Amino acid sequence: MAWQYWTESPRQGRWRQVDTPTIDTQHQVRIRTTASAISKGTETLVHNGQVPPNIAALMRAPHQLGDFSYPVSYGYLGVGIVDQGPDEWLDKRVFGLLPHHSHHVVDPSELLVIPDEISDHRALLTGAAETAINILWQQPPRYADRIAIVGAGMIGATTALLASKFPLERLEVLETNPARRELISSWGITAVAPEEASADCDLAIHVSGHEAGLARALEITGDDGTVIEASWYGENAPAVPLGADFHARRLNIVASQVGQVAVGHRHRRTTQQRQRAGLESLTDPRFENLISGVSAWHELPAVMDAVTQPGEFAAATLCHVFTYHDIERGIPDV
């Protein structure tokens, strides 16, 4: 038997036991999952029932089962081993945009083979790296730019790691959480509390998911500068202080969303090429620090509930990983 995680109503998720799938054609492969991870920003909206109906179709994950609102089986950070399919794919470790299931049957064109030097857990950050690349493609940093990244969650921290490779005059990460600031600083990247941020930035990247972060990004952006808004608010409607000096200083707010390749690269890069670039960036060992917790697969409903509501656990979570090595035993008796 196989297992699938379903969200059945707001804040109610559970595992369903299903028949183990098998491939239907020689052009498919079956993956036995070894690990999956929560993408906290988007999966919080799904878990809490906050996906706006008018964009439900755009929010669909590639291998989602069911529809919004419920029941729905969602997720897009999965790693596993190919155990059925063409000989050239057998036993390959692969990453895919796959929900929290024990097994998947997909077309191999939807998978990336994981390099030997990247662990299964680190490979789950491919989605975050792909998102960060899209953000940096949206408004590419220039030589000697001054850049601020507002928010050091999984996406913000990943964006900081990639941006640190550019020849910038200044890179600062603004974060309210002292533990996250300490982590960013350990990478050799400047991390400050929002009130301590430097002003006159050429580019501010907002990924905190809070309206206060967006307001601060506008405050520290220099005249004619740009704020990239990469946060996702769902049904929430953040207040944006456009009545301050937004018009007087001719600031720009540009949206970045990973569902489409950024405009500057859209005609020259496919989504899979962008995804591969994200996977290949994970050879940087600093990414290992973003794995903030590991649990057994059957603990996902409880962890999902804890990580998607305010509290110490959510504040400490960057990328939480679930392992599937004991899936054949089923859910333990409590």
Rank of each mutant, 00 (worst) to 15 (best):
A2F: 04
W3H: 14
W3N: 06
W6D: 03
P10W: 04
T25W: 07
T25R: 06
V29G: 05
A35N: 12
P53I: 02
A57Q: 10
R60T: 13
P71G: 10
S73C: 11
G75C: 09
L77R: 01
G85D: 00
G85R: 00
D87N: 11
L90T: 11
R93F: 06
F95S: 00
H103E: 03
D107K: 11
V113P: 05
P115W: 04
L125I: 13
T131V: 14
T131N: 14
I135H: 08
I135G: 08
P141H: 09
A144V: 03
M154D: 00
A160E: 07
L161D: 06
R170C: 06
L171R: 10
E175D: 14
E175N: 07
N177S: 13
I189T: 07
I189D: 04
A191E: 04
S198G: 15
A199K: 02
A199P: 01
C201Q: 12
H210V: 14
A217E: 08
L218T: 10
I220P: 14
E229N: 12
A230M: 00
W232E: 01
N236D: 15
G243P: 02
H247W: 08
L251E: 02
V254D: 05
R268C: 07
R268Q: 14
R269Y: 11
T270M: 01
Q275C: 12
R276L: 13
L279E: 05
D284R: 06
F287K: 05
E288A: 14
I291L: 14
S292F: 01
S295C: 06
A296W: 01
W297P: 08
P301N: 15
V307C: 09
V307P: 11
V321W: 02
T323R: 08
Y324P: 11
I327K: 03
